[in-house]
Simulated assay, not measured.
Amino acid sequence: MDSKIGDRIKSFREKQDISVDELAERTGLEAEFLKAVESDDMYPSLGPLLKIARALGVRLGTFLDDQVSRDPLVVRLDEREEELTMHRHKDVAEFKYYSLGKGKSDRHMEPFFVEILPESGEDKTLSSHEGEEFIIVHSGQLSVTYGKEESVLGPGDSIYFNSIVPHNVSAHGDEKVEIYAVLYFPE
């Protein structure tokens, strides 16, 4: 990837002549957090990225895409590239997202292969955003909190939910979890 997501966000913000403080006001996110996103590529979850995309009038995928659109898009296992690293604590990368849709610029879903490290289980903060999520566990044990309901999923298990309901996804136990996740964000 030739430019980082943080660089792309900053570029979109500057092209629209929007200050960091104005973007903070539009998104409800702290200005300091937005500065960290732009300079350090730091993300605690997809929710804030979606808020930033909405405030700038673009799809989340716009931050991930090259300018090339391919249809059909085939992503070979050995061609996967880590696109997003989510940190709840600055020094620990708890989620590693590999985009499976990058390059198809007219997409309406965001498919990912995600590695979730055990440290993710330490923070059970719920988040919500518009849209839907479909997850299937590839390996390990996944803990999913959906509202007041908690589920533990194993390899081959799946879950499909409306992401407007507060939720949390994390590793269950002390091993890494690998999942395939498809997120849909309405326009």
Score class of each variant (00 low, 15 high):
residue 104 K to D: 04
residue 86 M to E: 10
residue 79 E to F: 02
residue 93 A to R: 08
residue 65 D to A: 04
residue 88 R to V: 12
residue 72 P to G: 03
residue 90 K to Q: 12
residue 80 R to E: 10
residue 67 Q to D: 14
residue 87 H to Q: 10
residue 60 L to D: 03
residue 82 E to V: 09
residue 99 S to W: 04
residue 90 K to M: 06
residue 83 E to G: 14
residue 104 K to T: 00
residue 64 L to Y: 08
residue 83 E to Q: 12
residue 100 L to N: 01
residue 105 S to R: 13
residue 67 Q to C: 03
residue 69 S to C: 08
residue 93 A to K: 10
residue 84 L to N: 08
residue 75 V to G: 00
residue 92 V to K: 08
residue 60 L to V: 14
residue 99 S to K: 05
residue 102 K to G: 07
residue 92 V to L: 09
residue 74 V to N: 05
residue 81 E to D: 12
residue 64 L to C: 07
residue 65 D to Y: 02
residue 68 V to I: 09
residue 106 D to T: 12
residue 74 V to I: 10
residue 106 D to N: 12
residue 90 K to L: 10
residue 97 Y to C: 10
residue 106 D to I: 02
residue 107 R to I: 00
residue 85 T to N: 10
residue 81 E to G: 11
residue 91 D to Q: 09
residue 81 E to M: 11
residue 88 R to F: 12
residue 83 E to P: 00
residue 92 V to Q: 12
residue 79 E to N: 12
residue 61 G to Y: 00
residue 81 E to R: 15
residue 99 S to D: 14
residue 63 F to P: 01
residue 85 T to P: 02
residue 66 D to E: 11
residue 73 L to T: 00
residue 88 R to P: 01
residue 73 L to C: 01
residue 91 D to P: 07
residue 67 Q to K: 06
residue 69 S to Q: 05
residue 68 V to M: 07
residue 87 H to T: 06
residue 90 K to S: 12
residue 86 M to R: 06
residue 79 E to Q: 13
residue 78 D to L: 09
residue 77 L to S: 15
residue 62 T to G: 02
residue 107 R to Q: 07
residue 77 L to W: 14
residue 92 V to G: 04
residue 85 T to V: 15
residue 102 K to D: 06
residue 79 E to A: 11
